[in-house]
Amino acid sequence: MTVPAIDGWFTDSALLGTRCGSCGSYFFPPERAFCRNPACGSAELEETELSSTGKVWSFSVNHYDAPAPFTGKAPYAVVAVELTEEQIVVLGQLSATSDPSALKIGDEVSLVVEELSEGSEEVVWKWRTT
């Protein structure tokens, strides 16, 4: 039995964002109340799955454990990924199955849902090299 580490941000295979029904802007994490485009401000926000592949904008490998509430162990990598259609950059951890030493800016990565940290019952979205 696994539980999402945060509710309403992702499914088994995709990030959940919202899209403004009026101006078309995307939001992640999902913006539920009002569109944040200052020229819009519409309340018609529709939930939508975001592209599950993107290109690496930048990344870092952390060699020290982050403080609590982080539960993982160093080394671990954080990747910033550019989604082409949404024109948005989204962060995520690098999948435990990907090798950070082979990672380069511009590489294609895809979304995967994995345990938050080793042995955790909670799951979270991560990015995996393709």
Binding site: I6, P67, G72, V78, A80
Partner: peptide
């Protein structure tokens, strides 16, 4: 911190 382990230096490193 919980979901990403994104410390301040992580952002500086990006």
């Amino acid at each position: 911190f919980r979901l990403l382990g994104a410390t301040n230096p992580t952002y500086f490193a990006l």
